[in-house]
Simulated assay, not measured.
Amino acid sequence: MSEPPTADPQTVDVRDDTEANRYEARVGGQLAGTAQYIRTPGLIAFVHTEVDPAYEGQGVG
């Protein structure tokens, strides 16, 4: 099994997946973390965040 790419904050790609109500952080195309949210007209409340253990401590969160 190959090692996951090392996260460099400049190479973390963050995208808003509006259908899943979450932001996704990807490193080298691999899902490294997510931030679930509830969106209303005047507020975005983050209700859950998660970073894959392979990317912890690398600035993904």
Rank of each mutant, 00 (worst) to 15 (best):
E3R: 14
E50Q: 15
A7S: 05
Q10M: 10
P9C: 02
Q58H: 05
A54L: 00
R15N: 13
A25N: 13
Q10L: 12
R26F: 09
S2R: 15
R39C: 01
N21S: 11
V12G: 06
R39M: 03
D16K: 09
E24W: 11
G33M: 04
P5S: 00
H48F: 09
P9T: 04
A20F: 01
D8K: 08
F46P: 08
G29T: 02
A54G: 04
G59N: 12
G42M: 06
V27K: 01
E24H: 11
A54Q: 06
V60W: 11
T6S: 15
Y55E: 01
T6R: 15
S2A: 15
P53G: 15
M1N: 12
T49P: 00
V14D: 07
A25R: 08
E3Y: 08
N21R: 12
A54F: 00
A25Q: 13
A25K: 09
F46I: 10
G61V: 15
Y55K: 01
R39I: 09
A54T: 01
V60Y: 07
Q30P: 08
Q36P: 04
T40D: 03
V12L: 02
S2D: 13
D8R: 08
M1R: 15
E3D: 14
T34F: 08
E24T: 09
G33R: 03
G59I: 12
V14R: 05
V51S: 14
A35M: 05
A20H: 03
P5H: 00
E3Q: 15
T34I: 11
D52V: 00
P5N: 00
V27Y: 04
G29S: 07
A35W: 04
M1P: 04
V12F: 03
E19M: 10
D16H: 12
Y23E: 09
L31S: 04
P4V: 07
E56Y: 10
R15I: 11
T6Y: 06
A7Q: 02
E19G: 12
G57A: 14
G57C: 07
A20N: 05
E3A: 15
E50G: 11
T34R: 05
H48K: 08
D16T: 05
G33H: 07
Y37E: 00
V12K: 11
L31W: 02
G42A: 09
T11Q: 10
E56Q: 15
A45I: 07
T6V: 14
M1L: 14
E56K: 13
D13H: 12
T49A: 09
M1Y: 11
A20V: 05
A25H: 10
E19A: 15
P5Y: 00
R39Y: 02
D52S: 11
P5E: 00
D17F: 01
A45G: 03
T40C: 01
P41T: 09
D8H: 10
E24P: 10
I44N: 08
Q10D: 12
G61S: 14
R39G: 00
R22L: 08
Y37P: 00
N21F: 09
N21A: 14
E3C: 06
F46G: 06
Q30I: 04
E50N: 14
Q30M: 09
T6K: 11
Q58V: 00
I38N: 01
T11L: 08
Q10C: 07
G33W: 03
